[in-house]
Amino acid sequence: MTTYVQMLLVRWFRRPWGAGALWAMAIVPGVITAVIQIHDATVANPLGFRLETILYSTTALAVGLVAFSLFVLVEEEKSDGRGRALRVAGVDGAPLAAAMVIFGCLISTAFTVLGIGASAVVTTAVGGVSAA
């Protein structure tokens, strides 16, 4: 299973939409979080609620995109020669597809937490500078 996951990730990262999904998953929520935090810390923010909504929507979209792209990757090989070769080698993609979706969700969450954490650090720093 570990080898199949490795192979799937290599293939996924080398697909344009795989990289795109990663970008959406990791960078967009992080950047938006940072923008919100910096904005809140420096200026009065009447649009804060709407920005938060955008953040959560984007994160959900990114997770969905990752899950879907992994699902497509496994599904597209299931009925052709690649799936046949895998099954004969003792690898069944179906349960692994589910595992990869969960893995994608965890990674997405981790990146989002990292983004929030990073923006909090930035906010503290900016707040510190402002107070000084």
Binding site: Q6, M7, V10, R11, D80, R82, R84, A85
Partner: peptide, 26 residues
């Protein structure tokens, strides 16, 4: 060892990677 009739290669992988992954499956 089974070689299917329909295409069974992964476009994103290099030859060495592809063979190495299948060797690992075994």
């Amino acid at each position: 060892g089974y070689m299917p009739e329909t295409a069974a290669v992964y476009a994103e992988l290099t030859l060495a990677e592809y063979l190495s992954f299948f060797a690992a499956f075994h």
